[in-house]
């Protein structure tokens, strides 16, 4: 699974920073059929969590209503230099992870 995460490289302490995550995933709804009429099993990223220096700062529970290649954008307050780690799991049990470092000054 390809994914991208965007976090400002540098921030000042107390600053609100924007975090963006994009994941390549079919987000198969479970409502579709293949060319032979066989139902395509549901396969969506059901859970996505984002940790910042070990603490969970964001969690998304997604379902079949989310389009393919989900793109999420959210905000947090920069408190200390460290890593933002995004983990997710889909219905097939595939896990993915993407990380980015932020350095906080002041």
């Amino acid at each position: 699974m390809d994914a991208r995460i965007l976090v400002p490289r540098a921030a000042t302490r107390g600053q609100t920073i924007e975090i963006r995550v994009a994941i390549r995933h079919p987000m198969e709804t479970g409502f579709r059929f293949d060319a032979m009429g066989k139902p395509l099993p549901k396969n969506v990223i059901h859970t996505l969590t984002v940790r910042y220096n070990g603490a969970e700062i964001f969690r998304a529970e997604m379902g079949s209503g989310i389009a393919a290649n989900p793109y999420l954008q959210f905000y947090t307050v920069a408190e200390a230099s460290g890593e933002v780690i995004c983990d997710w799991t889909d219905d097939n049990g595939n896990r993915g992870s993407e990380r980015a470092a932020v350095s906080v000054v002041g």
Binding site: D2, A3, R4, L6, R20, A22, R24, N69, Y71
Partner: peptide, 10 residues
Amino acid sequence: FANPGMLWVA
């Protein structure tokens, strides 16, 4: 970043 095509470029 919002452009999903960039996932393919990556």
